[in-house]
Amino acid sequence: MWDESHYSRRTVIGTLCAIVVATVTALPVAGSNPGTESGRDDRQNRSSPAGNGRPMGRSETYVGVVDRIVDGEHVVILLEDGDEIVDQVVVAHEAYPFLEERDVVCVILVDGDVHRIRPLEERT
């Protein structure tokens, strides 16, 4: 018999977000030469996408919900792991002017700092 599993919307969105992030971060590596002229593998020395020369640190991906916008200046995003709120981040509203309260977003943190925020669904 068919055993139909039901997943919560947040679980599905979180999984999709993780797949997209893994795909996007793997693209530069997949197209690059794995070694240098000396035969050394220098993939561990990759720089961050910002091009600032610093090595990219540990990244984490979360599904987040915009909780509130404070004084039109700061956006408070609650980070979730499954159905549980695990943390919050505050970013400048001018850096992410497209965000509105109750938006569901994918948040990528690198070494605990916000690296990228992407909307996950259309506003209703």
Rank of each mutant, 00 (worst) to 15 (best):
R54P: 00
I19K: 01
D42H: 10
R10N: 06
V90F: 01
T11F: 11
P28C: 00
F98W: 08
E100F: 13
G53A: 02
P28W: 02
V76L: 05
Y96V: 01
D111P: 03
V12C: 07
S48D: 13
N45G: 01
T25K: 11
E84I: 15
G64K: 02
D113K: 12
N52E: 11
C106Q: 03
S5R: 13
V105K: 03
P28D: 02
P34R: 00
V29Y: 02
G14T: 05
D83I: 15
E94I: 15
E94S: 15
N33V: 04
D71S: 10
V86W: 05
I77G: 04
S8N: 09
I85N: 14
V90N: 06
R102F: 15
V107F: 04
T15R: 07
C17M: 12
I108N: 09
H74R: 15
T11H: 08
I85T: 15
P34N: 03
S8K: 12
V107R: 02
G64D: 01
V65S: 09
G57A: 06
A18Q: 15
V90W: 00
T23F: 05
S59W: 12
G57P: 04
V76H: 13
G64V: 08
R68E: 11
S5A: 09
E73F: 05
D41A: 08
H74S: 07
L78A: 14
E84H: 10
Q44F: 14
L99H: 01
T23D: 11
H74M: 06
R68K: 15
G39H: 04
M56W: 14
E101S: 03
Q44Y: 08
D87G: 08
S5D: 05
P97H: 06
S38G: 07
C106A: 12
T25D: 15
C106M: 13
V21F: 02
G31T: 11
S59H: 13
E37V: 14
V65E: 15
I108L: 12
G72I: 15
T15Y: 07
G53T: 01
G112L: 01
N45V: 00
V70P: 06
D67K: 11
E94C: 15
H74W: 14
P97G: 09
G14R: 05
A95M: 07
I69H: 12
C17T: 07
T15E: 11
Q44E: 11
N52I: 12
A18G: 14
D41E: 10
I13N: 08
V86N: 05
S5H: 12
H6W: 10
V66Q: 05
G64Y: 04
A95K: 14
G31N: 00
D111M: 01
H74T: 06
P55Y: 03
G53E: 00
